[in-house]
Computed example of a mutant assay.
Amino acid sequence: MTVRTIGFAAAALLLDYATAAAGAAAGDGFHRDAVAAPAQVRIEKVLFGHGRGGAPANPVRVGHATTPLRETYWKLTQLAGAPVEAPEHQREPHLILAPDENRASGSGGCNAVGGGFALDGDSLHFSQMMSTMMACPKAMKQERHFLDALAKVAHFRIEGDTLDLLDASDAVLMRFSAVAQH
């Protein structure tokens, strides 16, 4: 079986075809003439939106829910390929993208951070990021790397409850995990 990645409109058309084929095979009123040939159809991935060059973006796996980019508490788990842990008595580094406006807020691990972002398909750019100016000796280096990486973000990818922020060459700058809010 050949597995292809298809866009949303093509998936709807393919599902209509699969439904017609199944109906024809089951004899439930569909005419065999309406379907060229019954087919086995298995959809591996349905993609929503369009990324660079018309490529689909923001994967949603069938049977595996994907967390929304906005209004999710994204805890930083990896920075420049290294695991991230909050120093004792410090905030955990995280981001939250507002649901109705292009504002981001969170923490670099010591200071509160906030600013704007632009979102178009899988393109994501942070702008005018600011932070408070508290001194946290154990967290300052990591926080500086966090803020520097935010300035380099060009794209994002979400799979399940994992968010990757990518640079222009699609290298992973940071990885986040969605945290349930109570």
Rank of each mutant, 00 (worst) to 15 (best):
T2Q: 10
A9E: 10
A9W: 10
A10H: 10
A11M: 14
A11T: 15
A12P: 07
L15K: 07
Y17N: 07
Y17M: 09
T19K: 13
A20D: 12
A20S: 13
A25V: 15
A26M: 12
A26E: 14
D28W: 09
G29E: 07
H31F: 13
D33Y: 10
A36R: 15
A39P: 14
Q40D: 11
V41I: 05
R42H: 13
E44C: 13
K45Y: 08
K45P: 12
V46H: 06
L47Q: 14
H50C: 13
A57Q: 10
A57W: 08
R61M: 13
G63R: 11
G63F: 09
H64V: 15
A65Y: 04
A65V: 04
R70W: 00
T72G: 09
K75Y: 08
K75L: 14
L76W: 06
T77Y: 02
T77C: 03
A80W: 11
A82P: 06
A86F: 02
P87H: 01
E88W: 03
P93A: 06
P93T: 03
H94S: 11
L95F: 05
L95V: 04
A98Q: 02
G106F: 02
G108M: 01
C110E: 07
C110R: 09
N111P: 00
A112L: 10
G114I: 12
G115R: 08
F117N: 01
F117V: 01
F117M: 03
L119E: 09
L119Y: 04
G121N: 01
D122G: 04
D122W: 03
S123W: 10
H125S: 09
F126E: 00
A135R: 05
K138H: 10
E143N: 01
H145S: 12
F146L: 01
L147V: 05
D148R: 08
A149P: 00
A151H: 02
V153S: 02
F156T: 03
F156L: 06
I158K: 12
I158C: 11
D161M: 11
D161F: 08
L163K: 02
L165N: 06
L166Y: 05
D167A: 02
D167S: 01
D170A: 12
A171M: 11
L173T: 02
F176N: 00
S177C: 10
A178K: 11
A178P: 10
A178S: 12
V179F: 10
